[in-house]
């Protein structure tokens, strides 16, 4: 039986977002790095609010952007992988940190 997880992405503290005509730019002030996101990535980034789970994000993408679930999940996972490697987003398993009871 697989363990149920509630993965929640949260932007790192020193990261600022600038939304422009197309796409967005993330500025990681602590590392002096700039990350340019395409339009879809910019939209998905804004759902990383420290409260919404990956499952909820995928569900919303499927319902509103008419994406197939496996594509939506693949996209979100890939974005989290890239941004996680760049240390601009952290993913917390809220199921494992919930207080007992």
């Amino acid at each position: 039986m697989s363990e149920r997880r509630a993965l929640v992405p949260t932007p790192a503290g020193d990261v600022r977002l600038a939304r422009l005509d197309i796409g967005a730019v993330l500025y990681d002030e602590s590392r002096g790095r700039l990350h340019i996101l395409d339009e879809t990535a910019a939209v998905v980034w804004q759902l990383f609010d420290g409260k919404t789970t990956v499952d909820e994000i995928v569900s919303d993408l499927v319902d509103t952007l008419r994406a197939e679930e496996h594509w939506a999940r693949h996209y979100v996972d890939a974005l989290l992988g890239q941004l996680g490697d760049l240390e601009v987003v952290e993913v917390t398993d809220m199921a494992s940190v919930r207080p007992p009871g």
Binding site: T64, W71, Y75
Partner: peptide, 20 residues
């Protein structure tokens, strides 16, 4: 928010593009 993005042409396709 996502419906507005969809109306603006945002779609899920391929992999995210992030340039650093």
């Amino acid at each position: 928010f996502l419906r507005r993005a969809a109306a603006a042409g945002v779609v899920i396709g391929g992999l995210p593009a992030v340039r650093t």
